[in-house]
Design a protein around this nucleic acid. Structure first.
Length: 368
DNA sequence: TACGCGTGGAT
DNA sequence: TATCCAAGCGT
């Protein structure tokens, strides 16, 4: 007997029937209505925002969203842009496969759908970078489709209100939540505003039913909430299983020619896939060898090390700087598709990982 | 199916 | 400071 089948969220319960109606009423009065991607039904804008918001907080997304809209006002403009321009604009936002899929998706919409996003969640979910939840969000916001999302906000709300045990990242728990979320959708008969319902799910989780200190006193479901009734808000949803975070170490070469540095294009997959970064090596000696191969004559000098923490590992970066010894930049043939000499003042034109950007910004400051 | 994939905000 | 994890997806 699972927790789900004994909870107040059992299909047919009073709350199950009233959930959508109450949520929509709450959203209209207390939800968010002025985010930059709201008050439009333009699928392009909604899609762009939803991709950026994957695993990323609203406050972080806002400036990136504005930059993208200004540079790429519609899906055609984005599809026609070089991928390097897209990566450069995305740099700093993280999860770079999103940017590559964003570009691929724009091209698919232009080439396969005549420039118009398909209107159903099922069709949207076939496009690159659009999974089940994002497809439902776009379909409901842009087209009023009756489809449910299941993001981190919804998982938290469902786990608490309906008392669903277990870590929602676990497949078995997530599947149960998808089933429950489907049953909670407003019925066809009510002719409800599905976009208000979807926004309500997000808003409730983002503004009241937050992880730290949920504001149960203001919650429309407090009277029916399992977590509230049992004082288990802090324990629901179930925590992610702890795992040790490994530490990796890498040596980065700042090959400097005046105020320009050499950047390398990273492979399309893996960490920082598709971005431009400094040449790397696995140890000090290997880096010195690479420096000589580029034409450096002196030994690379130590710069202040930095650490960068990812979700799944910690990276210790040992930067070394050396003056380019080859004279003219053209001498080492470093201007192909994979390498580029970049003036420190033009780094933002390249997609560069956040810690590398910080390192180069500091170097630029020291040269002034 | 579990895991790899970024960065910065919140506590 | 350390830890968690945010409007998830692809493989």
């Amino acid at each position: 007997m699972s927790a789900l089948s004994t909870s107040p969220g059992t299909p047919g319960s009073p709350l199950q029937a009233a959930f959508a109606e109450r949520l929509i009423a709450w959203q209209r009065q207390h939800g968010r209505h002025d985010l930059p991607w709201q008050n439009t039904r333009d699928p392009y804008r909604i899609w762009l925002s939803e991709i950026m918001l994957q695993q990323t907080q609203v406050s972080t997304v806002i400036p990136y969203y504005a930059k993208f809209l200004a540079r790429f006002p519609d899906v055609g403009a984005l599809a026609a842009a070089p991928i390097d321009d897209v990566m450069a604009l995305w740099a700093g936002l993280g999860y770079y496969s999103r940017a590559r899929n964003l570009h691929r998706c724009a091209q698919a919409v232009v080439e396969q759908h005549g420039g118009a996003f398909p209107a159903s969640a099922d069709e949207l979910a076939e496009l690159p970078g659009i999974g089940r939840s994002t497809a439902a969000a776009i379909a409901s916001f842009a087209f009023g489709a009756r489809a449910t999302i299941l993001d981190g906000n919804v998982k938290r709300v469902l786990a608490r209100v309906f008392g669903i045990e277990g870590f929602p990242g676990e497949k078995r728990v997530e599947n149960a939540m998808w089933v429950l979320a489907e049953t909670l959708l407003p019925t066809e008969a009510t002719d409800a505003d599905v976009s208000a319902y979807t926004q309500g799910l997000m808003d409730l989780g983002a503004t009241l039913c937050v992880r730290g200190k949920p504001e149960c006193a203001r919650c429309p479901f407090a009277g029916d909430c399992v977590a509230h009734a049992t004082g288990r808000q802090r324990e629901l949803p179930g925590a992610r299983p702890k795992k040790a975070v490994p530490t990796r170490r890498t040596w980065m070469l700042v090959l400097r020619d005046g105020a320009s540095v050499l950047l390398e294009r990273r492979p399309p997959s893996g960490i920082w896939g598709g971005l431009w970064s400094l040449p790397e090596a696995a140890d000090e000696a290997a880096l010195a060898t690479r420096a000589r191969q580029w034409g450096a004559t002196a030994e690379p000098e130590r710069l202040a090390p930095l650490t960068h923490t990812f979700t799944h590992f910690k990276l210790d970066i040992e930067p070394r700087v050396v003056e380019f010894g080859g004279g003219a930049v053209a001498a080492c043939d470093a201007r192909d598709e994979e390498t580029a000499w970049v003036p420190l003042g033009e780094i933002e034109a390249y997609g560069v990982p956040a810690p590398v950007r910080k390192l180069l910004d500091a170097l630029k400051g020291s040269l002034l």
